[in-house]
Design a protein around this nucleic acid. Sequence first.
DNA 1: GCCGTTTTCGGCCCGACTGTTTTCAGTCG
Length: 405
Amino acid sequence: MYHGRRVQNFELARLFYEMATLLEVRNESVFRVRAYQRAAQMLESLTEDIAAVAARGGLQKLPGIGKDLAVRVEEFLHTGRIDQLEAMRRDVPPRFLTLLEIRGLGPRTAKLLWDRLGVDSVERLEELCRTKEILNVAGIREKTCENILKGIAIWRAGRTRTLLPAARAVAEQVASALRAHGGVERLEVAGSLRRMRETVKDVDILVTSTEPARVIETLTSLPSVTEVIARGDTKVSVRHQDGLQVDLRVVEPSAFGAALQYFTGSKDHNVRVRELAKRRGLTISEYGVFEEKSGRRVAGETEDEVYAAVGLPWIPPELRENTGEIDAARNGGLPELITADRIRGDLHAHTDWSDGHLSLEKLVTAAEDRGYEYIAVSDHSRSDTIAGGLSIDELRAQIQQIRQL
DNA sequence: GCCGTTTTCGGCCCGACTGTTTTCAGTCG
Ligand SMILES: Nc1nc2c(ncn2[C@H]2C[C@H](O)[C@@H](COP(=O)(O)OP(=O)(O)OP(=O)(O)O)O2)c(=O)[nH]1
Ligand SMILES: [Mg+2]
Ligand SMILES: [Mg+2]
C-alpha cells in the first residue's frame, strides 16, 4: 500500500472539524455539520496522502467527499487555506470556540451568550456567572449558572484523557464495589476502555439488572464518588475521586448484547452499523434490533446476534473505530488480532545486577511462566555506572551464572 | 453536504437527562 506524507491529511481534517463547529454555532443544518465531521474523520484514517488522491483525480471517490468538499480540498492544497473558513472565523471572537470545551456548554448557549452579553472568552463567562449578571439572559437561571461554573472548574483542571491502565484500575474498583452490593447480574466495561484505546476520556460500565434503581443508587452513594453529574432511571454519570468521570448504563438482561454493542462504540462505528440496518428495513438501538415496520424485535441478547442481523460477523472491539473494519467484515477480511500468548520472548530485560527489580532466577522463572522460548538479559554496562552498570568482571560473573541456570 | 443492490430527492443513528420551558431545546452518551 502507498504511504505518502500524511501531515496535510491531519491539518485538513482539523480545518474541517473547525468548519463543522463554526457551522454549528451559525445554526446550520446538523446534516451539513455532520458532512464536515465525516469528511474530517475520513481524512484522519486515510492511509494515502490527500494530495496524491487529488493528483490522480480521486477526491470524489472518497467516502464523504462530494462536489463541494472536493473544491475545498483543492483550495486547501493550492493555497494552504479555505476562504469560507477564514470568513466564518472573522464572525466570532478569536477565543470563542474554547467556550465549547466547557462541559454542558454547547453551540447554542455559547452563541446566545455572545449575542446577549458579548461573552468572548472563558474568563469573561466566569466573571458574568460570579456576578450573576448572566441571569439577565432569558432561558438562563440559577442552575445553569452553577453548572457553567462547575464546567469551568473542570476545564481549568485540564486533564482531558487518561492512560488506559490508570482508567482500568478505576473501572475495576468501581466494578467490584457495584458487584459487592446487590442487583447486578452481568457487568462489562465498555466504551474506549473495552476497545483498548491507549487513552480514554471516561469509564463506561454496562450492567444488566432487573433492579436498575438499586444499582444506580449504589454507584451514586459510593465513598469514592465525589459528584453526581446526571442521574436517571437507566443511566447515571458520576465523578470519581481521582477526577475521572464514570458513566453507568443499566438495561434489562435480554438487551445485554444490543446494549454492549451500543456502549462499546465507537460512535462512528455505531452509526455505520445502524445505517446498514436501515438499508435492511431494520433499526438498531441499545435495546435491540427491530423491524422498522412492525416494531418486532429480531435480536439483542448477544453482540453476535446484532452483527448477524446486518450481515456481519462479530467484530473485535479493538477494531470498532469505523476505519475500514465494516467493509473488511463484510468481505470476510477481518484481520486476526495478535494476542499476548503470541509473544515468544523478550529481547530486553534488566535484573537486580543493575537497575532491574528481579533476580536472574526470578526473571527466568517469570519468562517460563509466560511460556517464553527465550529471554535476553541486557543489564547496563560500565558505560552507565549511575544505573548500576556492570564492570567487565561482573559481566563475566553474570554470564557464568546464566550458564548455570 | 453527501448519497443511492429499492431512490438523483429526501432522507440522514437513536435515545437519556437537564433546565426551563407550558411542550421541548440543548447537550451528551
Ligand atoms: N449510537 C450512538 N452511540 C454513541 C454516541 N455517542 C456515544 N455513543 C456510544 C458509543 C461510545 O463508545 C459509548 C461511550 O461514549 P463515550 O463518549 O464515553 O466515548 P468512548 O468511550 O467511545 O471514547 P472516550 O470516552 O472519549 O474515550 O457510547 C452516539 O452519538 N450515537
Ligand atoms: Mg468513554
Ligand atoms: Mg462515556
